[in-house]
Design a protein around this nucleic acid. Structure first.
Lengths: 240, 240
DNA sequence: CTTGACCCTGCCCCAGGGGCAGGGTTCGAC
DNA sequence: GTCGAACCCTGCCCCTGGGGCAGGGTCAAG
């Protein structure tokens, strides 16, 4: 006849846990001795190890209770399912490890791969970090509104950056223009070149070229102080 | 400017969780629109993904809060530790899978390997399942009282079962005697043979041979109805 | 006869949300 | 113009699996 402490130690659980299992009806309450102490049998130890094993596998105690007096076939089926869940949980933890590793290395975690690749391409081009962040935030905003459109948008922009030298040049100039004064004499010329490039674009020219400023405006709303006098002036020149 | 629902969807968490993070001070409360709705920026999405990643790795929200504005070196160290915990947890789950598998296959889970081996040896000898269970329970009881003694005891009994033919014969007869009537004429003869074997044992003869009935008595206490009239009579004959 | 290690019950606490009540809002369809 | 669906708001109580503490009683050894 063993005490609650010895029982708990045998099974590798806390005394508190044993009492908890009594309360939940998982483990039979044993008899008491003259002092009112619980006195356990070996069978209790066997039952407790069973409970501990299932609970350690993440089975809710309510289900453990059912499983304890299920017939062997049902138990076997349940164990198979629990094992499947376990495999899945292990997989999730492993994916969690990968995500965690990316937390150390920049923004890859926060956006899908294609976007990360696009942002890296911008960086290789020599675009400022401020602009890269604007692009990233713009993508996130787009993406919350319409994931498919966002995916198309990133593909097209990637093609432009990789394949259109004039787009690259304009992009870098727009980036640099951020810091120019509002009355910088280079602004009208830049607006003209931009308009020329836009009219040179074929069919889908009404949607995409507008997108760049549109995104910028979105990002501007979301990030206070993300525009500049020169950009405002440039937008005015393009509209007018 | 995105709503709470879109933000939650982007990060793969529930709306409720986002509000929870606000309450805990993990995620900055954004501005409200004219209807009182929260309106988020892309930066919130980035922050939320970070929170979700740490939380998914099992980091308590209170620690997540600290990590969010820790410097990169501290963060890297913390991530290394979290990753270590993750590896440990994965290991535990894998061990849990093994234990679970044993739940289907008998009692190996409930006792250490040597004991399981000993019980299997008894079964091969032709001992009844009732007796095997008595032995198992006796071991568990012993073990909770004194693990080292229990280990020694199981080793000696294993040696006896493997190496002493007369012990094996006596053991099987004792097992069979369980069901005899109290006045069975074979009982005195069995008691005599048992006494003869006990006196034939060298040095440690006062501890071990007594153990078998002692264990039986322990098990008897723990398992109501685990003795029988014939066993009681046998114990009386051996004492007298 | 004390001291430390047990045991008892009962209560509140934690994370990490879920669910529901009891509202208000927005948007598209009819 | 109005209806319904799908959002959003706050506030409250609920869950699991125990931990911790209070405020006792008990037991064995020195």
């Amino acid at each position: 006849m063993i005490t609650i402490g010895r029982l708990a130690e045998y099974a590798g659980v806390s005394v508190k846990a044993v009492r908890h299992y009594h309360e939940r009806g998982l483990l039979a309450e044993p008899g008491r001795d003259s002092a009112g102490y619980r006195r356990y049998t070996a069978q209790h130890a066997v039952d407790l190890v069973k409970i501990r094993t299932l609970a350690a596998a993440g089975v809710p105690l309510a289900r453990v209770k059912d499983l304890l007096d299920a017939d062997p076939a049902t138990l076997a089926a349940a164990i198979a399912k629990i094992d499947g869940d376990l495999v899945e949980r292990i997989g999730r933890l492993q994916r969690s490890r990968e995500q965690l590793a990316q937390l150390r290395g920049g923004e890859r975690l926060f956006v899908p791969d294609e976007v990360a690749g696009y942002l890296d391409a911008l960086r290789r081009l020599g675009v400022s970090e401020r602009q890269v962040r604007l692009e990233r935030d713009g993508w996130i905003l787009m993406r919350t509104a319409s994931p498919e459109d966002a995916a198309g948008w990133i593909t097209e922009k990637r093609e432009l950056v990789d394949g259109d030298p004039e787009f690259r040049a304009l992009y870098l100039d727009h980036d640099a223009a951020y810091d120019w004064p509002r009355d910088d004499p280079r602004l009208p010329a830049l607006a003209d070149r931009t308009r020329a490039w836009m009219t040179g674009r074929p069919d889908r020219s009404e949607t995409r070229p507008v997108q760049n400023p549109a995104i910028a405006r979105l990002a501007q709303q979301s990030q206070p102080g993300a525009s500049s006098p020169a950009w405002d002036e440039l937008a005015r020149l393009l509209r007018g």
